[in-house]
Design a protein around this nucleic acid. Structure first.
Lengths: 96, 96
DNA sequence: AAATTTGGTTTATAAAATAAACTTGTTTAT
DNA sequence: ATAAACAAGTTTATTTTATAAACCAAATTT
């Protein structure tokens, strides 16, 4: 009746990050920070977790002389996100 | 862009409980336990939190000689649940 | 060249989820 | 009648998480 919710996605900030990445080709750290209004530390930690899980890929480079961290969703991440959305629907459609 | 998710509802078990209660008039502890497959301890704690928040009401009585705990969603709970669902949609509709 | 800002990471703390252990009373078996 | 097993929870302890605070290195501004 109530499917298990992927704990990696059932987190406000990680879900926001995945939500953004699911809709774009790539997004860098500062963009994610602005959009989510998260602190840098929190974002850094959550990006690590998503990376370890294989849900996103991180590429580190430079934009001019400044460091730049670019994130991209992986196919596994896309699928996990879709599954999570489906699972969640079971919880939201109460009376059904 | 990403609204704050009510932390009281953004919890797998509490959300399941609220989801059930949103669809029925009342449900007792054992029914909730069976439906959610939660441990009694966990369920007890989460019911407390929802009660303290004013999202549900608990009535204690007896069915024959055995204790019975009946739960009901409150108007405040109904509203919080609706708001949560709306907020969550912002997270799920990524590309929009 | 000192102060500030950028783009982060690491570490520490607070809060949450969860399970294990316990309680109170009931039913069943001996 | 009493011991064993079960029902319905609660309380307490443990593990995870989320989050922020503190820190770091390099770049930019004053």
């Amino acid at each position: 009746m109530f499917p298990k919710l992927d704990p990696l996605l059932h987190s406000e900030l990680r879900l926001a990050v995945m939500s953004i990445l699911a809709g774009v080709d790539e997004a860098d750290f500062t963009y994610l920070k602005k959009q989510t209004e998260a602190t840098a530390g929190n974002l850094s930690v959550q990006i690590d977790k998503l990376t370890t899980a294989g849900y996103i890929m991180v590429e580190k480079g430079f934009k001019g002389k400044m460091p730049r961290t670019t994130c991209r969703i992986t196919p596994a991440g896309q699928e996990a996100f879709s599954k999570y959305v489906e699972a969640l629907k079971e919880y939201l459609s109460a009376s059904k």
